[in-house]
């Protein structure tokens, strides 16, 4: 084989491998999408071609499933979690980025470490406490514990963005007589805004997909979408067409959000260990 021919073969093999990887990656997702538009009967026949129906998306919002309630809960809980977390995280991130604090490294390591604590450890005392103060099965309770998983990501991610903003504009404004708080409000916040939005979306995805806390803390009123999936287990087996329709409602918005912030996904998840 000549060198050129060899290269062509290698390229063809590579393309084939990549296509195979896409196939394996997308098949479970596509399968859910298809099942969501199938009738109950079609699901059970492993059909590739079928007459699509939108009925499943109606059924999941009707009684007894009432997925709309869960959708509302998920949206409110994830949104309020983010709205609370981002300003608090931004203040801390600015300080960590611009000043030397006593015990700064220790604080940052502890914040990082809390991210790695198994959720099941954190939730046991919260369950006991919430039971005593009446926060079980409330949105507020879930918002409070969600802060535990969201804050470390938010602080580290926003710190990364602020680290990237050059100091000189800030310094020039300080020389001109602006106070530190004015500088933060008029210079840093506008420049960091895209970063804050990115961190906000990232945290929204995490809060939206959160499972264990909601499983333990909710049972009726504050149930979120991922827990709502359990509704579609019937006595005669899982109702796959309805499960799939609910699955799409859970994942489609997150797909859109993830694509918006895809450039920062790696940095966010690794807390800046990989840039």
């Amino acid at each position: 084989m000549t060198g050129k021919r060899k290269k062509q073969v290698a390229r063809a093999i590579q393309t084939a491998l990549i296509l195979m990887a896409i196939f394996v990656m997308l098949v479970p997702i596509i399968w859910i999408f298809m099942a969501a538009f199938k009738t109950h009967v079609d699901v059970y026949q492993l059909k590739l071609f079928f007459t699509p129906t939108f009925a499943n998306f109606g059924t999941v919002f009707d009684a007894p499933y009432n997925l709309g309630d869960k959708l509302l809960n998920s949206t409110i809980i994830a949104f309020v979690t983010v709205v609370l977390a981002i300003p608090i995280a931004t203040m801390a991130a600015y300080s960590f980025s611009r000043f030397r604090l006593r015990g700064e490294t220790a604080m940052l390591v502890v914040i990082l470490a809390t991210q790695f604590v198994p959720a099941v450890v954190i939730i046991l005392p919260f369950f006991v406490m919430f039971r005593d103060v009446g926060l079980l099965d409330t949105r507020l309770g879930l918002i409070l514990v969600n802060l535990a998983i969201v804050m470390p990501f938010a602080i580290w991610m926003i710190k990364g963005f602020i680290d990237g903003i050059p100091l000189d504009t800030e310094e020039a404004a300080m020389v001109d007589g602006s106070s530190r708080l004015q500088v933060i409000r008029n210079i840093v916040l506008p420049m960091a805004a895209p970063g804050l939005l990115t961190a906000g979306i990232f945290c929204f995805i995490i809060a939206w997909n959160e499972f264990l806390f909601a499983l333990i803390l909710t049972n009726k009123d504050a149930v979120t979408l991922p827990i709502g999936l359990a509704l579609f287990k019937a006595e005669e087996g899982d109702l796959w067409n309805l499960l799939s329709a609910a699955g799409i409602i859970i994942m489609l918005p997150m797909f859109v959000l993830a694509l918006i912030i895809r450039k920062y996904f790696v940095q966010g998840m690794t807390m800046g260990a990989v840039r």
Binding site: I22, V27, I29, D238, L243, G247, I250, R262, F265
Partner: peptide, 24 residues
């Protein structure tokens, strides 16, 4: 383009991944 697609499984709730594999 493929790299962009790679985001999708990761934006999926792990609970939903569990459901989808039970299905598969």
């Amino acid at each position: 383009g493929v790299q962009t697609l790679l985001i999708l499984p990761f934006a999926m709730s792990p609970a939903l991944i569990g459901v989808s594999f039970r299905f598969m």
